[in-house]
Each structure stands twice: as structure tokens, then as C-alpha cells.
């Protein structure tokens, strides 16, 4: 009896380098390394010419200028062909007037989907679920979001995460719940008893030594 072997692929994790790939896209053959120096959002959708995905693509196109201001590029992905992607993008433009300015990977052989863990058989064995991978300018994975097939993504939250991560990198701080640019940020808590004693005397707004905030 032939033994069935299942290939185990390690899924990408936060803080690790994004898996390298080379893929056919609507903007030609692109490699992950082509995006080095920019932040990158790779996002997957279940299929072209489907309603929720169409609303998402229009929403991603709407925030694209804001993402560019933050040095961030977008790269879509589904297991459809490049011809299907082109036809869909043209149809969206024709029917809604919205231009989709970013490339979309045609992952027919599911190579990139498997690398990034975008297929969840419990949801669909043939389609990618709605994933969002935020990759920084050094090509390290900084955020992973998974959405079910039936729930469209929230663009405000994606922009907010980019703002939060870039604020953290620039200022060495953390951001509290529901943080928005301009709000107070969290000062990293001290990790010694001496530091804890001093923290509340350092001019920050503190609930206690472990929760202090400041304006940037």
C-alpha cells in the first residue's frame, strides 16, 4: 500500500523574513526583492469577478495614494490567471471608473499561496482566504491578518497598522489600543526595579510605572 506523504510547510511568522518568490503579475514578473526599501502589503483574495473582492480592490485603490505617502506598495494575489486578473481590472474600471494601480499575482500553481499559508482548506480547498501580510522595508513580516471569505477587509485598520509600525520604528515606542496618529504613545516599560522607581519621576503621564504615555 502506497503511503501518502503530506508536505509540511512552515508558515511565515512575525519578525521573520518574508518568503522569497518570483511570480507572474499583471505588471510583469516580480520578485519579492524588487520591493526592497519599500514597505509592502501582500494580500490575497478568493477569486476575481466576485462581489466582496471587487469592493476590496476598489477600497485598496482608494487608499493607495495614502499608502504611497507612507512608502508602501500593494501586491494582490489570487489563484486566477493573469488574463482573468486583466479582464477583471478592466471591468472594474469600465463599470465603476476605479483604476486598480497595483500589480496582482496570478498564482495558478499556488506556489506563493502555499509559501504564505493563504489556503485554509477549512474555508476552501481551491481559493485563497483574505490574508494581509505587512512587510517592512527590510522585508521582515511585521503583521499578518486573516479574514474569512465572507468578510471584507477594513482599510482604516490597515492604514492604522502601517502608521503604528512606522511610528514605533521611528520613535522606539509602542501604541495603545485604538491609537491614531497624533494620540499619545506608550513608553516602553522599564525592566529593572531601579528603572521602575525612576519611571514615575521622568515627566511622563503614568497610571503606574509600567503604563506611561507621552506625546510625540
Amino acid at each position: 500500500m502506497e503511503e501518502e506523504k503530506e508536505q509540511v510547510i512552515s508558515l511565515p511568522r512575525l519578525g521573520e523574513p518574508a518568503p522569497a518568490f518570483e511570480a507572474v503579475t499583471t505588471h510583469g514578473v516580480l520578485k519579492l526583492e524588487d520591493f526592497k526599501g519599500s514597505w509592502l502589503i501582500i494580500f490575497s483574495h478568493p477569486a476575481d469577478f466576485t462581489p466582496v473582492c471587487t469592493t476590496e480592490f476598489m477600497a485598496f485603490a482608494e487608499i493607495y495614494p495614502e499608502l504611497q505617502k507612507r512608502g508602501t506598495e500593494l501586491l494582490g494575489l489570487s489563484v486566477d490567471s493573469v488574463s482573468s486578473h486583466i479582464a477583471w481590472v478592466r471591468n472594474v474600471k469600465e463599470k465603476t471608473g476605479v483604476d486598480i494601480p497595483f500589480p496582482i499575482i496570478a498564482d495558478l500553481n499556488k506556489e506563493v499561496s502555499m509559501l504564505f499559508g493563504m489556503i485554509h482548506p477549512g474555508q476552501s480547498k481551491t481559493e485563497t482566504v483574505r490574508t494581509v501580510f505587512i512587510i517592512d522595508d527590510k522585508q521582515i513580516i511585521r503583521t499578518i491578518l486573516y479574514y474569512p471569505l465572507t468578510t471584507g477587509r477594513n482599510m482604516d485598520e490597515i492604514l492604522r497598522i502601517i502608521d503604528a509600525l512606522q511610528t514605533t520604528d521611528k520613535n522606539g515606542v509602542a501604541t495603545p489600543a485604538n491609537w491614531r496618529p497624533g494620540d499619545k504613545v506608550v513608553v516602553p516599560p522599564p525592566n529593572t526595579q531601579e528603572g521602575a522607581e525612576e519611571r514615575t519621576k521622568q515627566g511622563y503621564e503614568c497610571v503606574d510605572w509600567y503604563l506611561c504615555t507621552k506625546k510625540l
Partner: peptide, 12 residues
């Protein structure tokens, strides 16, 4: 053009 497009384009 975006830098990623140029990196890919000059390769082509």
C-alpha cells in the same frame, strides 16, 4: 515609475 517596476523592467 515605482522602483519595483523598474527593477523588474530592467531585468526584462
Amino acid at each position: 515609475l515605482p522602483l519595483f517596476r523598474v527593477r523588474s523592467g530592467v531585468r526584462e
